[in-house]
Computed example of a mutant assay.
Amino acid sequence: MIRILSSPRRRLSAGLAAAAFFLGLVSALQAGTEEKPFLDANDAAMARMMTGMAAKPTGDVDRDFVAMMVPHHQGAIDMAQAELRYGTNEQLRRIAQEIIVEQQQEIAAMQLAIGAPLPPSQSSPDQSTPHQH
């Protein structure tokens, strides 16, 4: 048997649902505001990576591979740096540090493999405590 809520109960339920929705929306907006610098940095890294990966083919498969992979690896470095700047999970921050080192090494190895000059040295990102939210 289906029981229909009385009118006052229905209004109360609708009001509570609306309040819960509003509070959830406010909470989501606040979280989005706190996360915005990270998301902006990540979006910029992705845009740079995608632009760089759109290299025009040269007819040399090896050079074309490196031309596309270097921006891909740099994108991973840039995203890892955003984690170091804004993330708070120590395990993820350590992984991000490892990603930076490993991806820099792979970029250098690919450049050496095709006889290209090594990329300029870059300083490591700040390893200090991330921004507090």
Rank of each mutant, 00 (worst) to 15 (best):
S13Q: 11
P119S: 12
F38P: 02
S121N: 12
S13P: 05
H131A: 13
T88G: 06
A18C: 06
A45K: 00
D60A: 01
E98Q: 13
R9I: 13
L5T: 11
M68E: 03
G52N: 03
A19Q: 12
A41M: 08
P117Q: 12
S128E: 03
Q91P: 08
V26G: 09
R11F: 13
T51I: 10
L25R: 09
A47E: 13
P120R: 14
M50G: 06
S128K: 05
A47H: 13
T51K: 13
R93P: 01
G52F: 00
L12C: 07
E90I: 09
G15I: 05
G87P: 01
G75T: 05
S121A: 14
D62W: 11
I107F: 00
T51P: 11
Q30W: 15
T51W: 09
L39K: 09
I100Q: 00
H133T: 12
D62N: 13
T129Q: 15
S121W: 08
D62G: 07
T33S: 14
H131T: 13
Q97W: 02
Q127L: 15
D64E: 02
S123R: 04
Q122K: 10
L112D: 15
Q74D: 11
F38V: 05
P57E: 04
M46D: 08
A76L: 04
F21V: 14
Q132H: 12
I4M: 09
V66H: 14
P119T: 08
Q103E: 02
P8T: 09
R85H: 02
A109G: 08
L12A: 12
P125L: 02
R9L: 14
D64L: 02
S124F: 03
V61H: 04
M69I: 03
A113L: 09
M68L: 02
L16Q: 07
T88E: 03
E106T: 07
R63T: 06
S123M: 10
D78I: 00
P37E: 04
G24P: 04
G115I: 01
F22E: 05
E90V: 04
A109W: 05
Q111M: 14
S6N: 14
Q103P: 01
N89Y: 07
P57I: 09
E102D: 15
D64R: 10
Q105T: 11
S7M: 11
A28H: 11
Q105M: 14
R3Y: 01
P57R: 06
A20E: 08
P130E: 07
R93W: 01
F21I: 13
L23T: 05
A17H: 07
A54N: 15
P130S: 11
L84E: 02
G52A: 11
T51S: 14
S7V: 09
P130W: 09
Q103R: 01
P117G: 06
D40H: 08
Q30M: 15
A19N: 05
Q111K: 15
D43K: 10
F22V: 15
G75V: 00
I107E: 08
A41V: 03
T33W: 15
G59K: 06
N89G: 04
S124Y: 03
G32V: 00
L12G: 04
P120K: 14
V101Q: 10
R11N: 12
E98V: 06
Q97G: 05
I4R: 09
D126S: 12
V26W: 12
Q122C: 04
H73E: 06
M79N: 06
I100C: 02
A41W: 02
E98H: 10
